[in-house]
Write a protein that binds this DNA or RNA. Structure first.
Length: 490
RNA sequence: CGGGGCGUAGCUUAGCCCGGUAGAGCGCCUGCUUCGGGAGCAGGAGGUCGGAGGUUCGAAUCCUCUCGCCCCGACCA
């Protein structure tokens, strides 16, 4: 090995780069059970930031948290025909408990629609009980064939929102609202631009009427489905007899929605912003936003500079320019026996957005020396008013990360592609998103997947569509029913 | 489950063809000197070579079986 301190580069082997980064930045580690992983503090810290931001948004939109059990009677899964077909193959099933064979096997939840709507049926009698707006933070298990850290593991953490409404339109509005919440989070917290839109019939959630999705582009130009929101119609309400008496006096089935995002987003964050030096975390999701590295030569200096670093930290954390509940998250790295350079590399690997160096020269000059993680730009900042400068710089980093990611996506987005040959050249070559016409036939979708591995990621929402809609289907040349986004996906 | 690769110290690995004292780098521990981009020197700890069987005077190395992991496919948040 030439230099085992350096990561494999993205250009050399994107997949190896990703795995090495996740392991070496200590985001996660392989567990003894094949396909499952341990989320280490660095990774879990990011997830906690994600949870906090999302949970606030869920509460703001009227949802309340609850918790439903891990085990679901096997018969529940079978009550909704499409649902069981979609999920049965990947379910873990408990057949024994307490040393005895169970009368009915229990499925370890792959998702909780069935148990939740079973319970909703007990709780809802009247239209006055609606809407019922519930979210749960939980782990789920899906027995996947091929796993990858954060992107696909046997067990993962997520949130699943489940709601019941009196009308289709209310449910549709909710489905759309939560897709918007996801988009807001992904763009403004993760700094990860997404395309929103509707999934095709073959890609929609098993049991849903319609599925909407947020699709992001990773640095290898592959798509990542980052979050989905489903309008379940009355499918589950009918299967679980979730009924209510309407104002009119009629008994009606409720209309459900479900929506979820998972720890997969941590993988998305890595693949959106990471570079060959390691992780790059958007400030808003960084467990540590600022690391202060004091620099000294002598023992006398060490005491002085460590003290100055602690004072700097105190000034930063006391600053309430972002509000009392959003204090700067600052760490001082005063470890002895490590040279400053070694510390720089370590914090860069871990993706801390901003580093402040504080040495004797800075003390003399009344400044601190800053280094941005994203651009690696360095500059002296006046010590006076440093907190406001740091807050502003972090905001700039947050915005620049989003702008860079968006520019990269646009640079790898291909529109006005009308020939299937050209389409294949792009997909098999550089990859990226290809906007093209589709006749709406699932057989065409299947054929393209078979031939190129590309799938329709979404039928994009209006704002993402091309100025001039494609008129013909990319494959058959027939009139196009939709403009769709094609890409290879994770 | 198909195809490919690999299991040697905490990590990365050399050695394996051609059997003969298990080696290195990183990391770790102790001490001294260092400290503005991965420090140096000295000393030290750490291995039943994935497991089981076989061949042999002798196996990390050869044979058989087995277990596990990674990558590529089919399936998917």
């Amino acid at each position: 090995m030439a230099d085992d301190k350096k990561l494999t580069t993205r250009a050399d082997d994107f997949s190896a780069w990703y795995n090495e980064l996740v392991l070496r930045a200590e985001l996660a580690d392989y567990s003894p059970v094949k396909g499952s992983m341990v989320i280490r503090p660095n990774g879990y810290g990011i997830w906690e930031r994600m949870q906090r931001a999302l949970d606030d948004k869920f509460k703001e939109t009227g949802h309340r948290n609850a918790y439903f059990p891990l085990f679901i009677p096997e018969s529940f899964l079978k009550k909704e025909a499409q649902h069981v077909e979609g999920f049965a193959p990947e379910c873990a099933v408990v057949t024994h408990g307490g040393g005895k064979k169970l009368e009915e096997p229990l499925v370890v939840r792959p998702t909780s629609e069935t148990i939740i709507y079973h319970m909703f049926a007990k709780w809802v009698q009247s239209y006055r009980d609606l809407p019922l707006l519930i979210n749960q933070w939980a782990n789920v298990v899906r027995w996947e064939m091929r796993t990858r850290l954060f992107l696909r593991t046997l067990e993962f953490l997520w949130q699943e929102g489940h709601t019941a409404h009196a009308t289709h339109d209310e449910a549709e509005e909710e489905t759309r609202r939560m897709l918007g919440v996801y988009r807001d989070f992904m763009e403004n917290w993760m700094a990860m631009p997404v395309i929103t839109g509707q999934k095709t019939e073959s890609e929609k959630f098993a049991g849903a009427l319609r599925t909407y999705s947020c699709e992001a582009m990773m640095q290898d130009n592959k798509a990542l489905q980052a979050g989905t929101s489903h309008n379940l119609g009355q499918n589950f309400a009918k299967a679980f007899e979730l009924k209510f008496q309407a104002e009119s006096g009629e008994i009606e089935h409720a209309w459900n929605t479900s929506w979820g995002v998972s720890t997969r987003m941590v993988g998305g964050l890595v693949m959106t912003h990471g570079d060959d030096n390691g992780l790059v975390t958007p400030p808003r999701l960084a467990p540590i936003e600022v690391v202060i590295v004091p620099i000294w030569k002598s023992d006398e200096e060490r005491g002085r500079l460590t003290e100055a670093a602690m004072a700097l930290k105190a000034e930063l954390t006391d600053y309430n320019g972002r509000g009392a509940h959003d204090r700067l998250r600052v760490h001082v790295d005063a470890r002895e026996g490590l040279k400053p350079g070694a510390k720089y590399y370590e914090w860069e690997l871990q993706g801390v957005p901003l580093r402040l160096e504080l040495g004797p020269k800075d003390l003399e000059k009344g400044s601190v020396f800053s280094a941005r993680r994203d651009t690696r730009a360095k500059a002296a900042i006046p010590r006076e008013g440093v907190a406001a400068s740091v807050v502003a710089l972090l905001e700039t980093i947050q915005n620049d990360l989003f702008a860079a990611a968006k520019a990269r996506r646009e640079a790898n987005t291909h529109r006005n592609v009308t020939s299937y040959d050209e389409f294949k050249k792009i997909i098999e070559g550089p990859g990226g998103f290809v906007y093209a016409g589709w006749n709406g036939d699932p057989a065409v979708e299947a054929r393209v997947k078979e031939e190129t591995k590309a799938t329709i990621r979404v039928i994009p929402d209006a704002e993402f569509r091309s100025a001039e809609a494609p008129t013909t289907c990319i494959v058959t040349g027939e009139p196009a029913k939709y403009e769709v986004v094609w890409a290879k996906a994770y």
